[in-house]
Design a protein around this nucleic acid. Sequence first.
DNA 1: TATTGTTATACTCTATAACTATA
DNA 2: TATAGTTATAGAGTATAACAATA
Lengths: 183, 183
Amino acid sequence: MRGGGIIACFMPSQPHPSPQVPAAAPRKRVKLPLASTDLAAIDQVDTRYLQTLMGYNARRAALSIIELFLERLAPYGLKPVDFSVMSTIQHNPGVTSRQLCATLNLLPPNLVGLIQSLESRGLIERKPHPHDGRAVGLHATPKGHDLMVQAEQTATELEIEKTAKLTPAQRKTLLTLLQKIYL
Amino acid sequence: MRGGGIIACFMPSQPHPSPQVPAAAPRKRVKLPLASTDLAAIDQVDTRYLQTLMGYNARRAALSIIELFLERLAPYGLKPVDFSVMSTIQHNPGVTSRQLCATLNLLPPNLVGLIQSLESRGLIERKPHPHDGRAVGLHATPKGHDLMVQAEQTATELEIEKTAKLTPAQRKTLLTLLQKIYL
DNA sequence: TATTGTTATACTCTATAACTATA
DNA sequence: TATAGTTATAGAGTATAACAATA
């Protein structure tokens, strides 16, 4: 099988204070003095092991951003997948469904409805492919183009907000290091 | 509403070569010389804009790791959520469902079946909470403990494999920077 | 024969409302 | 009244098989 989108997750969490992660993290678990049996109450939950996992941290960070993304992009009627597809079409006029699937790791059946929706909203047009009768080239309409100019700006702004604790240099480093994992 | 798990995504993609991201990325889009109309074929899909988004990169990296995680942890019968829950119970004996939900950002109704499954597999035990009759403390059984020792080692190994292009220092930097986003 | 796009469908994950029992 | 845990269920996301049209 081709690798479609994977959903499973390490689970993100709610907003925490912001401990600056000292060299030696303080013991977080507190046991009440009870009998010898392991019947105790947990005060703070210790997640230090999970925090050593890149998958856990990457997902938590991604979901933290996506949470705000959903909120800010809702006025455009775009969820992350719609946004990624529209953006890719915008920057690659004439791109085919097959290419979108390969690039964004979507499965063809799942892209069909998405494309139809974008088309019925007048955001994209389907034109015949120059030299492949099977394929269809996707193009952003002027309306779709204008929407994406706004949407991309909103997305970029939101991301800068979410990465406010990072210096520009750290932000660039982070992007580069993440790409070393998946590219 | 409380913030439950968020699924929406920027969509990951298939394994790519590994361009070392030069200072000025080369133009990737190629248009065939056709009429003045925008009817052209795309050779390489340009994803440079999406790659400037932290959410996109973080999610792509996370899914790249999770893909291998699913494969390697399948023998243990653990998916990422199960793993996170078991690991948190393992490191926090007596933790309650409510605490798990808050920590891992799960919604209570979705945790119920998961806990029941782990219990029926003999991996965890439910004991009365020391001073709250409503709550139930969760504890790993010896069987669950042993399973998680193995599972965590497998997970750690897999992660090292997936981050092989990073130096240990870069890996640590990446973890720290990601935590600056979601903590 | 292989590929593009599509249909139909099953499966998993996530979210919402409402209930119980304890506090 | 508020909280921990539960039930039932709806909704979104993802995956698989099979088909028609074109290469």
